[in-house]
Computed example of a mutant assay.
Amino acid sequence: MKLTFIDWKLRSYSEAWEQQTEMFNALIRAKLNGETYKNNIIFCEHPHVYTLGKSGKENNMLLNEEQLNAIHATLIHIDRGGDITYHGPGQLVCYPIINLDEYKLGLKEYVHLLEEAVIRVCASYGVTAGRLDKSTGVWLDVGTPRERKICAIGVRCSHYVTMHGLAFNINTDLRYFSYIHPCGFIDKGVTSLQQELGKEIAMSEVKLRLQQEINRLLDGKAG
């Protein structure tokens, strides 16, 4: 089953969202019309941006427009699930635009699969990560006062075709999370691989490891 990985490198959120949406709509059209299509998984980084999902609360953004300008960031309302999150340089963003029917996956199982891929990548660096009840994403020190999030997940799905995806903190400037209540949480921290390991991590290396894990997990589901 053909799965294409595309690296957009650094790309503005608005441009990436527009291109994602085009690919998403094209895949849905092809699926409904019985035409051929490709499943694509996109990697990229974004300039500083905050995105607020459909169920998000405005007051989880703690800065006004002038303050956002001062830190060279923007705020965009988008069509994924979830609340507010941050994207910026040093964070690996992954956008799978795939037909879940090909992999016999429901939406919950798909989110679980994305989480598992990140958990495995963290383990490959000696970082133990896991899941938090009633919350998507990947967390460290679950069940302790030091719970902190290393990867946010928010997806949109229509006709079992997906877009949006995950944001994995690698060498992220974590100060940018202090300007929001990430994903609506006010009592939990955020972290990155760099923070946990005490050194900068090669983004190209993490991309390769995440690609391999997603490939393995989806291959195991393909029928």
Rank of each mutant, 00 (worst) to 15 (best):
N40S: 10
N40H: 11
N40Y: 06
I41P: 04
I41F: 04
I42D: 02
I42E: 02
F43M: 09
C44Y: 03
C44A: 03
C44K: 06
E45P: 06
E45C: 03
E45Q: 11
H46S: 06
H46K: 03
P47W: 05
P47H: 06
H48V: 12
H48G: 11
V49A: 07
V49D: 09
V49I: 04
V49G: 03
V49H: 09
Y50I: 00
Y50E: 06
Y50D: 06
Y50N: 07
T51V: 00
T51C: 00
T51E: 02
T51F: 03
T51R: 05
L52G: 11
L52N: 13
G53M: 00
G53Q: 00
K54Q: 06
S55C: 10
S55T: 12
G56E: 04
K57E: 14
K57N: 14
K57F: 12
K57M: 12
N59H: 14
N59C: 13
N59D: 15
N59Q: 14
N60R: 08
N60H: 13
M61K: 08
M61Q: 08
M61I: 03
L62D: 10
L63I: 08
L63P: 08
L63A: 08
L63N: 00
N64Y: 11
E65S: 13
E66C: 09
E66D: 12
Q67D: 12
Q67E: 15
L68P: 05
L68A: 04
L68S: 09
N69G: 13
N69H: 13
N69V: 01
A70P: 00
I71E: 10
I71T: 05
H72Q: 15
H72T: 11
H72Y: 14
A73N: 07
A73E: 11
A73P: 05
A73W: 13
T74G: 05
T74Y: 12
T74S: 14
I76R: 11
I76V: 15
H77K: 15
H77A: 14
H77D: 14
H77Q: 15
H77F: 15
H77M: 14
H77R: 15
I78L: 15
I78T: 14
D79S: 03
D79E: 09
D79I: 07
R80E: 01
R80S: 05
G81W: 00
G81V: 08
G81A: 11
G81H: 03
G82H: 10
G82K: 07
D83K: 01
I84R: 04
I84C: 09
T85H: 04
T85C: 09
H87T: 06
H87F: 02
G88A: 01
G88Q: 06
G88H: 02
G88Y: 06
G88R: 09
G88C: 04
G90I: 05
G90A: 00
Q91G: 09
Q91V: 02
L92H: 04
V93T: 10
C94L: 01
C94E: 07
C94D: 05
C94G: 02
C94H: 04
Y95I: 07
P96F: 03
I97C: 01
I98M: 03
N99E: 06
N99F: 03
N99Y: 07
L100A: 06
D101E: 15
E102N: 13
E102P: 01
Y103Q: 04
K104W: 15
K104H: 15
L105Q: 00
G106S: 13
G106Q: 12
L107E: 11
L107R: 08
L107T: 14
E109H: 01
E109A: 13
Y110T: 01
Y110G: 10
V111I: 13
V111P: 02
V111S: 01
H112D: 12
H112S: 13
